[in-house]
Amino acid sequence: ENVVSAPMPGKVLRVLVRVGDRVRVGQGLLVLEAMKMENEIPSPRDGVVKRILVKEGEIVDTGQPKIELG
């Protein structure tokens, strides 16, 4: 899985990584606000952040790609 998608609709509060960052499985990639709760979205695997496809403040839909890992 190279693309991390939104598990639920919500607002991107914070992006916790930058392009080029090495990430580990379970590491937080971003914080999504859904139903007035903050949810940290974890990396599904070890890898390197290739692209960030969302911006802080953006509203995302379920299944929308957010971060691409290499």
Rank of each mutant, 00 (worst) to 15 (best):
V54H: 02
V54G: 02
Q27A: 05
G26I: 05
V25K: 15
I67E: 03
R18Y: 04
N39F: 15
R22T: 13
E38H: 10
G63N: 10
D21L: 07
V17P: 01
S43K: 00
V17D: 04
K66H: 15
R51W: 02
R24S: 12
V12L: 03
V60I: 08
E1T: 14
P65K: 08
I59R: 10
T62W: 10
L53W: 11
V31L: 08
D61F: 14
G20P: 00
A6H: 04
V23E: 01
K66N: 15
P7L: 12
E38K: 08
M8P: 04
L29V: 08
E68Q: 10
R51T: 09
E38S: 08
K50F: 06
M8Q: 08
G28H: 09
V23Y: 00
L16P: 02
P42R: 14
P9I: 07
E40Y: 12
P9N: 09
I59Y: 15
K50N: 09
K11A: 03
R51I: 08
E68P: 03
G10C: 09
S5D: 06
V54W: 00
G28E: 05
L32T: 02
V12C: 09
L30S: 02
E68K: 06
P42V: 14
G70D: 14
S5R: 15
G28Q: 06
V15S: 01
M37N: 10
L16T: 04
V15T: 03
G28T: 15
A6T: 06
M8S: 09
E68I: 15
T62E: 12
G20D: 05
N2L: 14
E58S: 09
L32R: 00
V48Q: 08
D46M: 07
V15C: 09
E1W: 11
G20E: 05
I67Q: 02
N39W: 15
V54A: 05
V49D: 02
I59S: 10
V19H: 05
P42S: 11
R14P: 06
L32S: 00
G10H: 01
G20H: 06
M37S: 11
V54P: 02
V31K: 00
L16F: 03
G63W: 09
K50R: 12
V25R: 14
K66M: 15
G28A: 14
E38R: 08
D21A: 07
P7V: 11
L32E: 01
V4W: 02
P65H: 09
Q64A: 09
V15P: 03
G70I: 14
L69P: 02
D21H: 05
V3S: 07
G20F: 04
Q27R: 03
P42I: 13
L69D: 01
R24K: 14
V3A: 07
D61Y: 15
N39T: 14
K36I: 07
R24P: 02
E38L: 12
E58P: 02
K55P: 01
L53V: 04
G10I: 05
K36D: 15
G28W: 07
P7R: 11
